[in-house]
Protein backbone atom coordinates (compact mmCIF):
# COMPACT_ATOMS: atom_id res chain seq x y z
CA UNK A 1 0.00 0.00 0.00
CA UNK A 2 1.73 3.12 -1.19
CA UNK A 3 0.62 6.69 -0.82
CA UNK A 4 0.45 7.69 -4.44
CA UNK A 5 -0.23 11.16 -5.76
CA UNK A 6 -2.78 11.62 -8.52
CA UNK A 7 -0.16 13.16 -10.76
CA UNK A 8 3.16 11.88 -9.48
CA UNK A 9 5.35 14.38 -11.30
CA UNK A 10 8.48 14.28 -9.23
CA UNK A 11 9.47 17.36 -7.26
CA UNK A 12 12.90 15.87 -6.63
CA UNK A 13 15.76 16.27 -6.75
CA UNK A 14 15.93 19.38 -4.62
CA UNK A 15 18.94 21.43 -5.56
CA UNK A 16 20.41 23.87 -3.07
CA UNK A 17 22.77 26.28 -4.71
CA UNK A 18 24.83 28.48 -2.39
CA UNK A 19 21.83 28.75 -0.10
CA UNK A 20 22.26 30.94 3.00
CA UNK A 21 20.17 32.63 5.62
CA UNK A 22 21.07 35.72 7.62
CA UNK A 23 19.26 37.70 10.29
CA UNK A 24 20.16 41.35 10.61
CA UNK A 25 23.33 40.78 8.59
CA UNK A 26 24.46 37.90 10.80
CA UNK A 27 24.69 34.71 8.74
CA UNK A 28 23.18 31.68 10.45
CA UNK A 29 23.56 29.39 7.46
CA UNK A 30 25.96 30.04 4.57
CA UNK A 31 26.72 28.74 1.14
CA UNK A 32 24.98 25.37 1.27
CA UNK A 33 25.24 23.52 -2.02
CA UNK A 34 23.63 20.11 -2.06
CA UNK A 35 21.34 17.87 -4.11
CA UNK A 36 18.72 15.77 -2.41
CA UNK A 37 17.94 12.86 -4.71
CA UNK A 38 14.77 10.82 -4.92
CA UNK A 39 14.44 7.95 -2.46
CA UNK A 40 17.37 8.86 -0.23
CA UNK A 41 17.51 8.89 3.54
CA UNK A 42 19.59 11.93 4.39
CA UNK A 43 20.56 12.48 8.00
CA UNK A 44 21.52 16.03 8.92
CA UNK A 45 23.96 16.10 11.82
CA UNK A 46 25.85 18.71 13.75
CA UNK A 47 26.20 20.26 17.18
CA UNK A 48 23.58 22.44 18.80
CA UNK A 49 23.34 25.71 16.97
CA UNK A 50 24.99 24.34 13.84
CA UNK A 51 21.86 25.26 11.88
CA UNK A 52 20.20 21.86 11.44
CA UNK A 53 16.63 22.97 12.20
CA UNK A 54 17.07 26.10 10.14
CA UNK A 55 18.32 23.94 7.27
CA UNK A 56 15.17 21.83 7.38
CA UNK A 57 12.91 24.89 7.53
CA UNK A 58 14.63 26.41 4.52
CA UNK A 59 14.34 23.19 2.54
CA UNK A 60 10.69 22.75 3.56
CA UNK A 61 9.91 26.32 2.54
CA UNK A 62 8.78 27.66 5.92
CA UNK A 63 11.33 30.42 5.37
CA UNK A 64 13.08 31.62 2.26
CA UNK A 65 16.86 31.80 1.83
CA UNK A 66 18.38 35.29 1.97
CA UNK A 67 21.16 34.25 -0.40
CA UNK A 68 21.52 31.55 -3.02
CA UNK A 69 18.75 29.37 -4.41
CA UNK A 70 16.48 26.50 -3.51
CA UNK A 71 15.27 24.78 -6.62
CA UNK A 72 12.83 21.89 -6.84
CA UNK A 73 12.61 19.78 -9.95
CA UNK A 74 9.11 21.24 -10.24
CA UNK A 75 10.38 24.81 -10.08
CA UNK A 76 11.23 27.61 -7.66
CA UNK A 77 7.86 27.71 -5.93
CA UNK A 78 7.14 25.83 -2.73
CA UNK A 79 6.43 22.26 -3.79
CA UNK A 80 3.23 20.78 -2.39
CA UNK A 81 4.15 17.11 -2.15
CA UNK A 82 6.24 17.50 0.99
CA UNK A 83 5.58 17.29 4.71
CA UNK A 84 7.40 17.96 7.93
CA UNK A 85 7.29 16.46 11.41
CA UNK A 86 8.46 18.73 14.19
CA UNK A 87 10.26 17.87 17.39
CA UNK A 88 7.11 18.91 19.27
CA UNK A 89 4.28 18.55 16.79
CA UNK A 90 1.31 20.87 17.14
CA UNK A 91 -1.84 18.81 17.17
CA UNK A 92 -5.11 20.64 16.79
CA UNK A 93 -7.66 20.67 19.61
CA UNK A 94 -9.90 18.13 17.98
CA UNK A 95 -10.05 14.37 17.53
CA UNK A 96 -7.31 12.18 16.09
CA UNK A 97 -9.39 11.56 12.97
CA UNK A 98 -10.09 15.29 12.55
CA UNK A 99 -6.36 16.00 12.81
CA UNK A 100 -5.72 13.58 9.95
CA UNK A 101 -8.52 15.17 7.94
CA UNK A 102 -7.31 18.75 8.40
CA UNK A 103 -4.46 18.93 5.82
CA UNK A 104 -6.58 16.96 3.35
CA UNK A 105 -9.35 19.53 3.67
CA UNK A 106 -6.79 22.30 3.15
CA UNK A 107 -5.74 20.56 -0.02
CA UNK A 108 -9.34 20.77 -1.18
CA UNK A 109 -9.88 17.03 -1.59
CA UNK A 110 -13.49 15.89 -1.93
CA UNK A 111 -15.16 14.71 1.25
CA UNK A 112 -15.42 11.08 0.15
CA UNK A 113 -11.71 10.91 -0.72
CA UNK A 114 -10.84 12.47 2.63
CA UNK A 115 -12.98 10.03 4.56
CA UNK A 116 -11.41 7.11 2.72
CA UNK A 117 -7.87 8.44 3.25
CA UNK A 118 -8.44 9.06 6.97
CA UNK A 119 -9.84 5.54 7.40
CA UNK A 120 -6.91 4.06 5.50
CA UNK A 121 -4.40 6.06 7.57
CA UNK A 122 -6.00 5.09 10.87
CA UNK A 123 -5.81 1.46 9.79
CA UNK A 124 -2.31 1.67 8.49
CA UNK A 125 -0.91 3.08 11.75
CA UNK A 126 -3.10 1.15 14.18
CA UNK A 127 -4.85 4.33 15.34
CA UNK A 128 -8.41 3.04 14.96
CA UNK A 129 -8.98 2.73 18.69
CA UNK A 130 -7.85 6.33 19.16
CA UNK A 131 -9.77 7.82 16.23
CA UNK A 132 -12.29 9.79 18.29
CA UNK A 133 -9.92 10.65 21.15
CA UNK A 134 -8.89 14.31 21.56
CA UNK A 135 -5.44 14.50 20.02
CA UNK A 136 -4.10 16.77 22.76
CA UNK A 137 -4.74 14.13 25.39
CA UNK A 138 -2.60 11.43 23.77
CA UNK A 139 0.75 10.41 25.26
CA UNK A 140 3.93 11.90 23.78
CA UNK A 141 4.65 8.77 21.76
CA UNK A 142 1.08 8.58 20.47
CA UNK A 143 1.18 12.26 19.54
CA UNK A 144 4.35 11.80 17.51
CA UNK A 145 2.86 8.72 15.85
CA UNK A 146 -0.18 10.78 14.91
CA UNK A 147 2.05 13.55 13.57
CA UNK A 148 3.85 11.02 11.37
CA UNK A 149 0.55 9.52 10.26
CA UNK A 150 -0.75 12.99 9.43
CA UNK A 151 2.37 13.66 7.36
CA UNK A 152 1.97 10.31 5.58
CA UNK A 153 -1.70 11.03 4.80
CA UNK A 154 -0.53 14.08 2.87
CA UNK A 155 1.20 11.66 0.41
CA UNK A 156 4.52 13.51 0.43
CA UNK A 157 7.40 12.71 -1.93
CA UNK A 158 9.78 14.08 0.67
CA UNK A 159 9.37 14.12 4.44
CA UNK A 160 11.41 16.38 6.70
CA UNK A 161 11.80 15.30 10.32
CA UNK A 162 13.29 17.59 12.94
CA UNK A 163 14.54 15.52 15.91
CA UNK A 164 11.31 13.49 15.79
CA UNK A 165 12.13 11.26 18.76
CA UNK A 166 14.30 13.44 20.97
CA UNK A 167 11.49 13.92 23.49
CA UNK A 168 10.44 10.27 23.54
CA UNK A 169 11.35 7.19 25.54
CA UNK A 170 13.25 4.28 23.88
CA UNK A 171 10.19 2.17 23.02
CA UNK A 172 8.38 5.11 21.42
CA UNK A 173 11.62 6.02 19.63
CA UNK A 174 11.78 2.51 18.21
CA UNK A 175 8.25 2.78 16.84
CA UNK A 176 9.06 6.12 15.21
CA UNK A 177 12.22 4.72 13.61
CA UNK A 178 10.26 1.78 12.22
CA UNK A 179 7.72 4.15 10.74
CA UNK A 180 10.44 6.26 9.11
CA UNK A 181 12.06 3.13 7.68
CA UNK A 182 8.72 1.99 6.26
CA UNK A 183 8.09 5.40 4.69
CA UNK A 184 11.48 5.19 3.06
CA UNK A 185 10.76 1.70 1.72
CA UNK A 186 7.58 3.10 0.17
CA UNK A 187 9.73 5.50 -1.81
CA UNK A 188 9.37 8.62 0.33
CA UNK A 189 12.56 10.65 0.48
CA UNK A 190 13.60 11.28 4.08
CA UNK A 191 15.52 14.29 5.38
CA UNK A 192 15.98 14.09 9.12
CA UNK A 193 17.98 15.77 11.83
CA UNK A 194 18.99 13.86 14.91
CA UNK A 195 21.27 14.08 17.91
CA UNK A 196 21.14 10.37 18.39
CA UNK A 197 24.22 8.73 16.81
CA UNK A 198 22.68 5.26 17.03
CA UNK A 199 19.60 6.49 15.23
CA UNK A 200 21.73 8.15 12.59
CA UNK A 201 23.62 4.89 12.00
CA UNK A 202 20.40 2.86 11.84
CA UNK A 203 18.55 5.14 9.43
CA UNK A 204 21.16 7.07 7.49
CA UNK A 205 22.08 6.42 3.87
CA UNK A 206 23.67 9.79 3.44
CA UNK A 207 24.96 12.16 6.07
CA UNK A 208 25.19 15.94 5.80
CA UNK A 209 27.33 17.37 8.58
CA UNK A 210 26.83 21.04 9.49
CA UNK A 211 29.29 23.08 11.48
CA UNK A 212 28.63 26.72 12.42
CA UNK A 213 26.14 27.20 9.63
CA UNK A 214 28.28 25.56 6.94
CA UNK A 215 28.03 22.20 5.24
CA UNK A 216 31.43 20.70 5.78
CA UNK A 217 30.79 17.05 4.93
CA UNK A 218 28.24 15.25 2.75
CA UNK A 219 28.93 11.56 2.12
CA UNK A 220 27.36 8.13 2.21
CA UNK A 221 26.61 7.23 5.82
CA UNK A 222 28.80 4.14 5.92
CA UNK A 223 31.83 6.16 4.79
CA UNK A 224 31.02 9.00 7.16
CA UNK A 225 30.78 6.79 10.22
CA UNK A 226 33.80 4.70 9.18
CA UNK A 227 36.08 7.71 8.80
CA UNK A 228 34.94 11.29 8.85
CA UNK A 229 37.18 13.56 6.80
CA UNK A 230 36.96 16.71 8.85
CA UNK A 231 38.34 17.15 12.37
CA UNK A 232 35.02 18.70 13.50
CA UNK A 233 33.04 15.63 12.41
CA UNK A 234 35.63 13.37 13.98
CA UNK A 235 35.37 15.25 17.24
CA UNK A 236 31.57 15.18 17.04
CA UNK A 237 31.49 11.41 16.58
CA UNK A 238 33.99 11.01 19.40
CA UNK A 239 31.61 12.88 21.62
CA UNK A 240 33.80 15.97 22.05
CA UNK A 241 32.22 19.35 22.35
CA UNK A 242 33.01 21.39 19.29
CA UNK A 243 32.22 25.01 18.67
Amino acid sequence: MKPVRDSPASILPLALDGMGYAVAGKPLLSDITLRIETGRRLIVMGANGAGKSLFLRLCHGLIDPTTGRRLWASGEGRAEAQAMVFQRPVLLRRSVAANLDYPLALEGLPRAVRRETVARTLDRFGLNALAERPARLLSGGEQQRLALARAWAMRPQVLFLDEPSSALDPSATKIIEEMVAQFSSEGITIVMTTHNLGQARRLGEQVAFLHRGRLIEHRPAAEFFAGPQTPEARAFLAGDLIW
Binding site: R57, H60, L62, E80, A83, M84, F86, P89, V90, Y102, P103, L106, E107, R150, M154
Partner: peptide, 11 residues
Protein backbone atom coordinates in the same frame (compact mmCIF):
# COMPACT_ATOMS: atom_id res chain seq x y z
CA UNK B 1 2.56 28.19 18.74
CA UNK B 2 0.87 27.01 15.53
CA UNK B 3 2.47 29.12 12.81
CA UNK B 4 5.10 26.70 11.48
CA UNK B 5 2.90 23.65 11.80
CA UNK B 6 -0.02 25.27 9.98
CA UNK B 7 2.21 26.62 7.22
CA UNK B 8 3.70 23.15 6.89
CA UNK B 9 0.26 21.57 6.62
CA UNK B 10 -0.60 24.02 3.88
CA UNK B 11 -2.61 26.70 5.68
Amino acid sequence: EYREQLLSLGA
